[in-house]
Design a protein around this nucleic acid. Structure first.
Length: 570
RNA sequence: GCCCAUGUAGUUCAGUGGUAGAACGUCACCUUGGUAAGGUGGAGGUCGGGGGUUCAAUCCCCCCCAUGGGCUCCA
């Protein structure tokens, strides 16, 4: 069923849910109830938050309403009539107030009427399958200054089968949660002693190191310098950069010999100190300075989420200093690099957004226009589809964001390319132009993977833990059939290790099936089993992650194959 | 930060107003195996932390911490 029709069904389902809620909780005040990204929700102002049992009751009442197969009736009414009709609904009155001059319509089914633009399905009977999923608090009109209402999320389909398929898929998705994978594969852990600051174990570090090594190579190839700046810097720097005024609430502070210092939440001020340490000629531009910068941000406790949202993370940051004339081409180069990185990690689909000048902004209109045009032109010339978010840019410049989908279909901002007019001015940065005069460079901030931590999380969910060979923390496991094969197994593992392959052995006193099963659950790409058949021939039986078997493969030949596969993938 | 839920063995989870149980893992022994769990036995828990109610709290109440799902905010 196409998206549009489903959305209509979901929207209608939210009306049915509101009807059901009102039957059970007559005093519930109605907020809004649209179709969501997947399913629908409705916000209610109730005295007590809904409990799990309430959801069951509401769902049951909904099914009754569906059974009655009420027709949806649309009616257009005047603002006065609407105010009269919804006199007991404060939130609806607020909405009506905002509809000045527009057509006001209501939809009714049975005895229930809601203020609504529509459209809706013909009748409630079209909702053949419905399930209420969870409750959540949600601020009225999305502002934390407003009252928090109680939201119920649900899903519905035109058939029971589709609902069952949906639920099954959700369950599978839940199983590829990166936190669970991280624990199962011994990649990282999170402890109460450091909320939002994950601990990476050896196997997790192997993956991160591989990512970093590849990242550095691709950057060096493209003329980036790679630097590291200190994690703690004097307050004066943050005053100058403006972070003290605008970002203080998100920063951590410390003190050294009675002087105030801040733990960096961003890398740019440090990088600028390197830039400004010496004079630069226009001939040197663009200067591209990259840093895998560890930043700390004091995120509010409620937003922390596995590796997706943390307080300490590593940005694959870089700052590009160039002339306005170079801006477009530099942005194109950054986008090209983004594509190279994403595709190397298996992401070929992502959403691109362009955010333009906000109301409060610094820099002249002309500068903004030139920068925004450059960003747009770069995207267009690269043939990249994008969505424009008017007024969503940073106060210091417009930006392009890259969003990657996680297993739960949530979009996570990873890459970001931001033009900045503010920092060069605040730090009085300049280069010497052809005319022997000082000129202000344009600064581009960019992080392509975004945060290594978040990217790692998205990567794990994308592959359900079964990372490509070159990223796998353990690339091969060699299993001994019986005790007498231990020595042989250790010997071939040593040969592989000598060639740089990450290999583990399993010579435990357990059945082959069990050892294979465990290696398989660890998502190890290649499992080698050696027994009497193989030991005499310097061979092993190979099992791929897919379960496919290849008997008595000479070890040397297999090592070459693996090395070729690792190399090719990069 | 706000709303809701959760926190019990290394892991996944049962459970009860009279201080705990399973499976897997771990350890020992038996078994020496041919591609997703071989068998037997043992060890292992101040039931997230702190208060309170009670003769008695892991269970009921309050506070705190953390985690998850959302809202708001963000890479």
């Amino acid at each position: 069923m196409e998206r549009e029709k489903l959305e209509t069904l979901w929207h209608s389902s939210s009306h049915v849910m509101a009807d059901a809620v009102r039957q059970i909780f007559p005093n519930a005040k109605l907020g809004i109830g649209p179709a969501a990204r997947e399913g629908f929700y409705y916000d209610f102002d109730v005295e007590k938050p809904f409990a799990a049992e309430d959801l069951e009751k509401i769902e049951k009442a909904m099914k009754e309403i569906v059974k009655k197969n009420y027709k949806f009736d649309r009616k257009e009414i005047s603002k006065g009539e609407a105010e009269k009709q919804f006199a007991k609904e404060p939130y609806k009155l607020e909405l009506i107030e905002g509809l000045e001059g527009q057509t006001i319509s209501t939809y009714s089914h049975g005895a229930f009427t809601d203020l609504c633009r529509g459209p809706h399905v013909q009748s409630t009977g079209e909702i053949k399958a419905v399930k209420l999923l969870r409750t959540a608090g949600a601020y009225w009109r999305g502002s934390e200054k407003n009252k928090m209402l109680q939201r119920i999320y649900g899903i519905s389909f035109p058939s029971e089968q589709e609902l069952q398929e949906y639920l099954k898929k959700q369950k599978e998705i839940g199983e590829r949660n990166h936190i669970k994978i991280g624990k199962d594969l011994d990649l990282f852990s999170i402890h109460v002693e450091a909320p939002g600051m994950p601990f990476f174990h050896d196997k997790g570090m192997i993956v991160l190191d591989e990512i970093v090594e590849f990242w550095k190579e691709e950057h060096r190839k493209r003329g980036y310098e790679i630097v590291t700046t200190p994690m703690i810097l004097n307050k004066s720097l943050w005053l100058q950069s403006g972070h003290w005024d605008h970002y203080k609430d998100n920063m951590f502070f410390t003190e050294i010999e009675e002087q105030e210092f801040a733990v960096k939440p961003m890398n740019c001020p440090g990088g600028i100190l390197i830039f400004s340490e010496k004079r630069h000629s226009y001939r040197e531009l663009p200067i591209k300075m990259a840093e895998l910068g560890i930043v700390h941000r004091n995120e509010r406790s409620g937003v922390l989420n596995g590796l997706f949202r943390v307080r300490k993370f590593t940005q694959d940051d870089a700052h590009i200093y160039c002339t306005e004339a170079q801006l477009k081409d530099e942005i194109k180069k950054v986008i090209e690099l983004t594509k190279v990185l994403y595709s190397a990690f298996g992401f070929n689909e992502y959403q691109v957004e362009l955010s333009t000048k906000p109301e409060k902004a610094m820099g002249s209109d002309e500068t903004w226009e030139h920068a925004t045009k450059s960003l747009k032109a770069a995207l267009n010339e690269m043939g990249i589809q994008f969505k424009v978010n008017p007024g969503e840019g940073a106060f210091y410049g417009p930006k392009i964001d890259f969003h990657i989908k996680d297993a739960l279909e949530r979009n996570w901002q990873c890459g970001t390319i931001q033009v900045d007019f503010s920092m060069p001015e605040k730090f009085d940065m300049y280069y010497i132009g052809e005319d022997d005069k000082k000129h202000r460079p344009v600064m581009i901030h960019r992080a392509l993977l975004g945060s290594l931590e978040r990217f790692f999380g998205v990567l794990l969910e994308n592959y359900a833990g079964a990372l490509p060979l070159w990223l796998s923390p353990v690339q091969a496991k060699v299993i001994a059939l019986a005790d007498r094969h231990s020595e042989y197994v250790e010997k071939i593992a040593a040969e592989m290790r000598a060639k740089g392959i990450r290999v583990e052995t399993d010579v435990r006193n357990e059945s082959v099936s069990k050892k294979v099963r465990e290696a398989q659950m660890q998502k190890i790409p290649y499992i080698l089993v050696a027994g009497d058949l193989e030991a005499g021939k310097n061979a092993a039986t190979i099992r791929k992650r897919s379960g496919e078997l290849e008997k008595e493969v000479p070890v040397q030949k297999f090592i070459e194959r693996m090395l070729a596969e690792i190399k090719e993938k990069k």
